[in-house]
Amino acid sequence: MVEEYLISAAVLGLIALGAVLAWRVWPGPLARVMIRFERTRCGRKSERCPIADIDWHVLTGGHGEPLILLHGFNADADHFNRAARHLTSHFRVIAPDLPGFGETRVGAMPDYRIEYMAAKVLALLDAMRIERFYVGGNSMGGYLAVAVAHQAPARVRGLWLLAPGGLHSAPYSPLYEAVYAGHHNPLVVRDLRDFERLLDYCFVRPPYLPTPLKRYLARRAANSVSRAERVFADLRFRSTPLEALASGLTVPALIVWGQADQVLHPQGLNVLADRMSHAQTLLLPATGHLPMLEKPRETAEAWLSFAESSARQQVSLQDASV
């Protein structure tokens, strides 16, 4: 009896040791399992939607009006998992991996200008037979959400902009000061050290990530350095500034910014709001560049409140015009 117990304990110990070694040496497979588990826990499923030269990977979940969520630079659709947990009982949440990032596969992408990317997102929504929708995004994704609304204002019911990029008249943030001082762009990750430095820029309180998972995410980003550099250049130097895209838009918008954002200066909140006639603003204290990850419940609840209020106002306007 004792011998059987000792043998069982030894076998379990070897299995555990093997799992730990595999996690440290080959983090990829286990990291992907963890990511899939989080998607399932947040009520999201993975779908593919091939269109011409782009094989889109899309996370979907929930029911209700479509809410399209667009991630930031060097990120992916999983950045919205935590916020989606609070949204899927109210919206059909749809988050694609944008071309050049995540699990979306692209052929010969001519360029990554924001106007071109917006046209591609609209083509994806056409293929999914989504006519009218809400659209939100973080950083590059917020910039892209405004570009989508600029190209198809009649289709967009509302905008949710989380520290959107693309502003040229806002003050430089600490990250952009480093870029324009000639240092390596912190948004372009080459190794684990770069990844950890980027986390420091993005968060006040970074979420816990095991080192092997960090290593996996850093390695994935490092495999696309040349593409990331090209995307950054196309967005920063070849795209229409956010100010021009937003000016004159009458789509209701909620603009959210973290007060401690080191990636994009928080004064961008007022710079953008001044150009949008139907915008409301929210400045989150003790929050960095990724509010949907750092404060997912608070960020999601702010959007739900805004969307409900906006929908009531639109109904009132329709009733008044009858």
Rank of each mutant, 00 (worst) to 15 (best):
Q280P: 05
F203R: 03
W160A: 10
Y176L: 15
Y201H: 05
L269F: 00
G158F: 04
L198C: 07
L198F: 14
L213P: 01
E177R: 12
V231W: 10
R157T: 09
A178L: 14
P174K: 05
L283W: 06
G158P: 05
A163I: 06
V156R: 02
V189C: 11
K214T: 08
Y216W: 11
A178D: 14
I255Y: 01
L167W: 06
P207Q: 10
Y208M: 14
Y216T: 04
G268H: 02
L159V: 02
A163T: 09
T240Y: 00
A181W: 12
E177P: 03
R275Q: 08
L187H: 01
L242Y: 05
L192Y: 03
P171G: 00
R215Q: 09
L235F: 05
H265N: 05
Y172C: 02
L283V: 09
V263R: 03
Q267K: 12
P186M: 13
V256R: 04
S169V: 07
S173I: 01
P186T: 12
L213W: 09
F232W: 10
D200P: 07
A181C: 13
P212C: 01
L162F: 08
A218Q: 15
P285W: 10
A246Q: 12
R155C: 09
L161I: 03
A178I: 07
Q259Y: 10
G182E: 13
